[in-house]
């Protein structure tokens, strides 16, 4: 039975809420695999839509690494990332349209298998405007 990697994503400062144009910094850890078992690791910072409509997705930051490129310490591979977040689109929880921002790590294992982990965060503070006047 091949080993299953365990992915942990952590954002600097522990906050999950960011202002548009601010710096998003963090790191991810990959545990339980060797460099031979992993073909590549993709890190994306992206938004996607949820709700009634078909999913739309746009990538703000993307990086593809091999494990050899990542530092190894205390039994885990560590990948750091940092990017300036854009001004839009802001995170939104509407009635039929929702916009979700996240950091997503996708690990490509040998034999074509993939494992992914994502950590959602909030960009800006846009809300469903209250009120339908009668």
């Amino acid at each position: 039975m091949p080993a299953q990697p365990h992915i942990t994503i952590r954002l600097e400062g522990g906050s999950r809420s960011f202002s548009p144009g601010s710096l998003l910094r963090g790191e991810y850890w990959l545990e339980g695999v060797s460099s031979e078992e992993v073909k590549a690791v993709e890190l994306s910072i992206l938004w996607y839509t949820e709700g009634k409509g078909e999913e739309d997705l746009a990538v703000h930051f993307f990086r593809r690494d091999s494990l050899d490129q990542l530092p190894y310490a205390a039994g885990r591979w560590i990948g750091a990332f940092s990017t300036v977040l854009p001004h839009s689109p802001l995170s939104y929880q509407g009635l039929i349209v929702k916009i979700v921002w996240c950091v997503r790590v996708r690990v490509f294992l040998a034999r074509g298998k993939q494992v992914l982990e994502e950590l959602r965060f909030r960009l800006g503070s846009a809300w469903v405007p209250k009120g339908i006047s009668k």
Binding site: T49, G53, E54, E55, D56, L90, Y92, W127, V128
Partner: peptide
């Protein structure tokens, strides 16, 4: 324009 409201948004399948 109400403060804190969502801005205009457009993607292939979703729109505000």
């Amino acid at each position: 324009i109400p403060a804190g409201a969502m801005h205009s948004f457009q993607s292939p399948h979703n729109k505000i």
